[in-house]
Amino acid sequence: MNYLEHVGKYFLMLKQVFKKPQRARVFREALFKEIEELGHKSLGIIVFISFFIGGVIALQTALNITSPFIPKYLIGFATKRSVILEFAPTFCSIILAGKVGSYITSSIGTMRVTEQIDALEVMGINSLNYLVLPKIIATVFFYPFLIVLSMFLGIFGGWVAGITSGMFSHLDFIEGVQLDFNPFLVEYAIIKTLVFAFLIATVPSYHGYYVKGGSLEVGKASTQSVVWTIVIIVIANYLLTQMLLT
């Protein structure tokens, strides 16, 4: 199957996904379960990485400012821009693509190879709607919260790095963070996050739903889904940046 056939099959899958759920109570239970699995359980890794990467960005920026004519408050400014524009929305989404994407593909793929999806179809249940739509809603609504939290923690990590290392004062850092704040950059990051969240939910679901074979093929599909999700996120990041910032 070539790439165009995969793309066509992907959009046909989405057409089935967005049909009205047949059983509201069952759908609601599945949604809460996905929010727990895809959102709440991703909180720890985002908190940990955001804090320390923010500190690394601040320290590396400070190390590269060697001229006495360059004001120290630019460390805070550069950290803020780096975290908001790229680190929080893009880097964290790539991390979530690995963690969440493999989970989605393996869970749906296991249901496929053990014929549980066939059983749902026999009972008259739209399996794509039942399995994939709760994942899309959970990621699209919950991940912007994770990314905003990542922004705050990244900047806070840079501030803590300055205090503990002594390479720059916390007052200079705060001045840089407050300098030339543009609310649109946060909106831009949220827009990217929404697109990335949709991709994280749907691309692994596609690979898991259409897997064929046994457990070995499920493992291969999980690897492929993570790779393709990251590739598509990187391409989407470039296109969104060109459309929104140029």
Rank of each mutant, 00 (worst) to 15 (best):
168 F>P: 07
149 L>W: 01
157 G>D: 14
176 G>D: 09
153 L>R: 02
146 L>G: 01
176 G>F: 03
165 S>Q: 05
171 L>Y: 05
158 G>L: 04
190 I>C: 10
174 I>K: 04
170 H>K: 13
179 L>Q: 13
148 V>P: 12
148 V>S: 06
184 F>W: 09
172 D>C: 01
158 G>H: 03
163 I>V: 15
163 I>A: 13
186 V>F: 13
189 A>Q: 07
165 S>V: 07
166 G>W: 04
185 L>D: 12
171 L>N: 09
187 E>T: 12
170 H>Y: 10
153 L>E: 02
193 T>M: 14
189 A>S: 10
192 K>W: 07
184 F>V: 06
153 L>S: 01
192 K>H: 05
169 S>I: 02
152 F>H: 00
161 A>M: 15
177 V>H: 01
189 A>Y: 08
181 F>A: 07
168 F>D: 14
162 G>H: 01
190 I>R: 08
179 L>V: 09
176 G>S: 09
184 F>T: 04
165 S>D: 06
148 V>N: 11
152 F>C: 03
182 N>Y: 09
193 T>D: 14
182 N>D: 15
194 L>F: 13
151 M>P: 02
176 G>H: 02
193 T>R: 10
179 L>C: 06
162 G>R: 00
147 I>R: 01
159 W>K: 06
194 L>Y: 07
171 L>D: 11
149 L>E: 10
176 G>Q: 06
156 F>R: 09
193 T>Q: 08
181 F>R: 09
191 I>V: 09
154 G>S: 13
157 G>M: 14
190 I>F: 03
156 F>Y: 13
171 L>Q: 10
174 I>G: 02
161 A>L: 13
161 A>G: 12
160 V>P: 05
171 L>A: 10
189 A>R: 07
173 F>Y: 07
194 L>W: 13
183 P>W: 05
156 F>K: 10
145 F>L: 12
148 V>G: 05
150 S>P: 04
178 Q>R: 09
145 F>Y: 13
165 S>P: 08
185 L>H: 07
159 W>G: 02
164 T>E: 05
193 T>A: 08
183 P>I: 11
149 L>R: 04
160 V>G: 03
176 G>P: 01
195 V>M: 12
179 L>A: 14
178 Q>G: 06
180 D>R: 11
172 D>H: 02
154 G>K: 09
188 Y>I: 04
187 E>K: 08
149 L>P: 03
176 G>E: 14
172 D>L: 00
189 A>I: 04
159 W>R: 08
166 G>N: 08
172 D>G: 01
